[in-house]
Design a protein around this nucleic acid. Structure first.
Lengths: 290, 290
DNA sequence: GATTCTTGATCACCATTTTTGATGATTTAC
DNA sequence: GTAAATCATCAAAAATGGTGATCAAGAATC
């Protein structure tokens, strides 16, 4: 039979208060109740915990060790209690966030770090997806939030804007297109376009060029690596290639249809399911900070 | 109010058995008892743990997290119980062993390693002392065992022999005494003798030579270092200087009164206080192995 | 679709456990 | 030596937890 946590508390109180009487006062019980509790505990464990030989009780050697263990059990139980209290007061147990891989991760991570520092009890799960895959995953996982470049608006979704991101059409300095003074659609279509794999299987990136040959990469890091190797051309978010453009490793392509475009990422939540405290706090941090 | 461990067990059983009825069977209770327990638990935590909406109960999101915590509490409590069982069956909670620093530590450490591998629950404390300090500490700490070179026999102490150790009188190869063909007591008394500090403050090493100048070191490692630096001469246990004698860094002194002596270390226990299972096992390992 | 099973909630009742308050033996403090 | 602690013990009261029966509602079976 497993010991009762109240009995462990009694043992602890006896030791810290220096006696049964003190423990009773501390626990708002009567002395005989404490006496009963620890005796029962000792019976259950089949082990003397207190030495009643003298005027004041003392821990037996075994009691000392058991008290250490008992305190661990108590602490664990209280941790559980505290967690429950927070869940009960509006902190959701889990928060799932889908992030579009085209967005800079840093502001999101910074916000999560703050959240952790505020000792938010919620277990936050972040998943990175691309293009249509973001909303696909948002729906499939019943996620709470998504940070997305494009999404299909619906009445049950509520969006708020995030800071703009700029995309730049570029290629390696060694790439044939990099040398051109001006590039038109036909020029582009003759070369390999690099794109990020849409993790839902219904690719629909409105910024693609419709050439014959497209290589799909698994993310923007891989895409950038492919660009640097001269494998092809493609759009990249500015924050990922600024350094390379400055150093000349990559070149911005002088495409007549526009060499850059900006978009406003959205932080999307479900209108019908209110965010818990953690979700609300995260949304707030993402809105204020980045 | 802290949740009751039995209630946590009920929650766990409901989830693993897939329902109240199954849990009741598993815990040898009746279904309504389980129902009562979890409802009380939920009341205490102020939190719904199970979703009774459908035909079969399901954990709520908060319930999932709480179950994880609950299992930790249960595991901790069971660990405590297991420990108690072992203490109750003769494993002492603590075992204090005093070891004479002149003895090779390796056999002792090997025995302790074995003890640990056998998952002995006892917390073993080993202290190294020197000369009279060993018995001094043995008495002061009310230790259970001592491994000692010399000790004052008493009726309440019971000893068993350990493998012999040889001591060699030596000095650095550069030391004046190292060159002599024969050394007598007067020769020795003219040089600095190196000795290990007695950690009780009543030095009585019967192997000292009574010269004017004695340097006391804090252990045999320090003493050996001092010997190698040519600071003086002194006795060293053979196992610590064999290599140095072979390489010629140290020399055995041709003392007319004997250049070597052997002693039989003793494993001493208290006759009036029987060893616990861990102490007995350790004594057994030390007797058989080294 | 009607019937049968199963699931979990609920209730009144009873057994057990826990708390209480009183008492007593022993030890410490003054 | 007296007064004030300390802790054990006991009977009675209170609270807690368990039992078995019953009920409504969702699956499963035919």
């Amino acid at each position: 039979m497993t010991p009762d946590i109240d009995a462990l508390r009694a043992l602890d109180a006896i030791v810290t208060c220096g006696g049964f009487a003190g423990a009773a006062r501390r626990l708002n019980r009567v002395q005989s109740a404490i006496s009963y509790q620890v005796r029962k505990l000792e019976d259950q464990l089949g082990l003397m915990l207190l030495d009643r030989g003298g005027y004041r009780v003392q821990l037996t050697p075994a009691g000392e060790i058991m008290l250490i263990e008992a305190r661990k059990v108590i602490a664990q139980a209280e941790h559980m209690e505290a967690l429950a209290r927070r869940f009960a007061t509006g902190w959701e147990p889990r928060l799932t966030v889908i992030v579009d891989g085209i967005l800079p991760l840093e502001p999101t991570l910074a916000a999560l770090k703050l959240l952790a520092e505020e000792r938010v009890p919620t277990r936050v799960q972040v998943k990175v997806e691309f293009l249509g895959g973001v909303q696909f995953r948002f729906d499939k996982d019943e996620a709470d939030l998504m940070l997305v470049k494009d999404y299909l608006a619906r009445p049950d979704l509520h969006a708020q804007p995030l800071p703009d991101v700029t995309c730049i059409l570029c290629a390696s300095a060694d790439h044939p297109l990099a040398a051109a003074v001006s590039v038109d659609l036909t020029d582009l279509q003759e070369h390999v376009e690099l794109s990020v794999q849409d993790s839902s299987d219904q690719g629909n990136d409105r910024h693609m060029f419709g050439g014959e040959r497209v290589f799909y990469l698994s993310g923007f890091v891989a895409k950038k690596q492919a660009l640097l190797m001269g494998l092809g051309f493609g759009w990249m978010p500015k924050y990922l290639v600024e350094e390379d453009l400055r150093c000349g490793r990559l070149r911005e392509l002088p495409f007549v249809g526009g060499r850059r475009y900006r978009f406003t990422p959205q932080l999307v939540r479900r209108a019908n399911r209110p965010l818990g405290l953690a979700g609300a706090r995260l949304a707030e941090l993402l809105r204020d900070k980045p």
